[in-house]
Design a protein around this nucleic acid. Structure first.
Lengths: 327, 327
DNA sequence: TTTCATCATGTAAACGATTACAATAATCCT
DNA sequence: AGGATTATTGTAATCGTTTACATGATGAAA
């Protein structure tokens, strides 16, 4: 690969002039500009990002922290982030943390090393103290999950309201015995969605029954299936279930199917996220849609603004209840 | 962030000595080593990857090209790549190409720029000429999809054999009317799996019926559903289906369910990939498992060996037919 | 013609590390 | 003690850019 000096030599100018041509500095005469461009073309020269970044101390790389790429919830968000970032000349580095603090530490170091210019974190299990500390010094935004104390900028939806509306939808359909399959409540979204669930029940004078709330420790299908197994074995069996993620809902659906119960006649089911699979189940799943692509775009824009030193405001986006066959 | 010079000053030595301490060069006395380490600790110094890489002209970053992160097939492979890479001191950059040549070009340039040390490509729709050309100069390996001419190192499975065994399994169950839902045959795996399908039919004296082979142009659920719709409308309807991916199979299953047909009694179904969803459908899906995690590990090892200048051999891995409820 | 702007280009110093080589200090051997 | 090794450290060049500053050329105004 040619360097800037070889180009300079070939064009009969100094490296500085070549650099000016590359960066569209206006102080280059048309004559030399053309000569330089010709040389760049002939040598197939590409500026070394390493050299440039060292000098400018920026890398134009954004870190995106997610717990697991296999969770389809993140796919659309990432598309949004990627499209926006590329349009602004940034590349993104997808970092799967597996909720593993060691991995996280590696990625945190990348920003200290100047190998990345900023972080978008979607990892709810992230080491909060470290992240907040890092956010004092470096540009960081959170997407979906966020810190209540406002120490880190974020893009999210109103989880409580969304859950409230989903449960209200079930109540309006005449459901009285509504269970909740929740994630670990160390996640803010889990706590908020539970609030919404309870709020809806209270508002319509329905009891909040302890045993109708199942909290999973994992996020996979199996957890949803396991949860449903427990709920179906209750003496006073619920007739509707609100699961805080489609993945959990699909696991639950599996267990319902195994027991030869019908959805929605015997058990109505609502999920959350509108992942593409939720439309492939039989029956299709009622769910809450988040504007994932848009959230991705906005997080990226927000982060890039932060990097450029602008002030940014937190964003709470709208959601939408998608009513399908399972209710 | 402190630089190496500040550390040197604080420890009362030269930057060279600090560098030697960091890189475990043995030519440093214990006395100074301890002083330097103390200074590094006090200043919370982290070496700048940018500076180091510029000097060494390496970035310790690996590019992983995938068409779409939302395809769960890639998740496990990526886990394998990531674990191996991190263990060897490399980070990976997940690049979603969306099969878009412009995006691809961006990522190809990163390796020219020295921003990445190598590429693992899993993108079958990749611009082949460019990739081959790049592979002449830079370390590149292909995982899963590969070039028949052997111009690029690869890790893969024996797609033809796997398809052959899947179809033979159906035949052994007494199936005589077996359809194929295939991907676009620009993909090598699609061509190979079709070969396996036809080979099994021929071997057992079954006819290869033109209208029982449906070729999709997309890879999503919808395509599988659409394919099944067509197959079900045939006068001479097949009683078994081999789909070349679980995603297509799940789409097909959806359509079968809609038509109130039973699996496997009315239609038997085999998928490919053993994605986690394939165990959540009702009934669960018979499928072909690829050792995805292992394939990821081996690709990463292979690439790192290439980067280090070693010769590497192509690898064909074993697969396994997973028999479940759908057959 | 002289004097100033203005414009185009070159020079050289960064950026933050690594490392060949040189220089010094410590140790050993006779 | 004197000379030869060896261990430790420093000096300075280098990687490939960008950019403040200096320089020289050109043209306009007086």
């Amino acid at each position: 690969m040619a360097t800037i000096h070889e180009v300079a030599q070939k064009a009969g100018v100094s490296a500085a002039t070549v650099s000016r041509v590359i960066n569209n500095r206006n102080t280059v005469s048309d004559k030399t500009r053309i000569r330089v461009e010709q040389a760049i073309h002939d040598l197939e020269y590409e500026p070394s990002v390493l050299g440039r970044n060292l000098r400018n101390s920026e890398s134009r790389l954004l870190l995106v922290l997610i717990p697991s790429i296999s969770n389809p919830f993140y796919s659309e968000i990432i598309n949004g982030i990627e499209d926006t970032a590329i349009a602004q000349g940034y590349n993104i580095l997808l970092c799967e943390t597996d909720s593993n603090p060691d991995r996280e530490a590696i990625y945190f170091n990348m920003i200290r090393n100047r190998l990345a210019d900023g972080i978008i974190s979607m990892d709810p299990t992230v080491n909060k103290e470290k992240l907040i500390e890092l956010a004092n010094t470096y540009p960081i935004v959170q997407c979906s999950e966020y810190e209540k104390d406002g120490s880190i900028s974020f893009v999210t939806i109103d989880n409580e309201l969304a859950a409230y509306q989903a449960v209200r939808h079930l109540i309006k359909l005449g459901q009285k015995k509504i269970a909740l399959i929740n994630s670990d409540e160390k996640f803010l979204y889990a706590r908020e969605r539970r609030q919404g669930y309870e709020k809806a029940l209270r508002e319509f004078g329905l009891p909040i029954k302890h045993e109708w709330i199942y909290i999973t420790d994992q996020l996979g299908f199996q957890s949803g299936q396991q949860a449903m197994r427990v709920l179906l074995n209750l003496d006073d069996r619920p007739t509707a279930v609100f699961a805080v993620s489609d993945i959990l809902a699909i696991g639950a659906l599996k267990e319902i199917n195994i027991n030869d119960l019908r959805v929605p006649q015997d058990i109505a089911l609502v999920g959350f996220d509108k992942i593409s699979f939720s439309n492939m189940t039989h029956p299709t799943l009622t769910t809450v849609a988040q504007p994932m692509y848009k959230m991705g775009c906005l997080s990226a824009t927000m982060l890039i603004n932060k990097i450029r030193g602008k002030r940014v405001d937190n964003i709470v986006m709208d959601h939408e209840l998608i009513i399908r066959e399972s209710t």
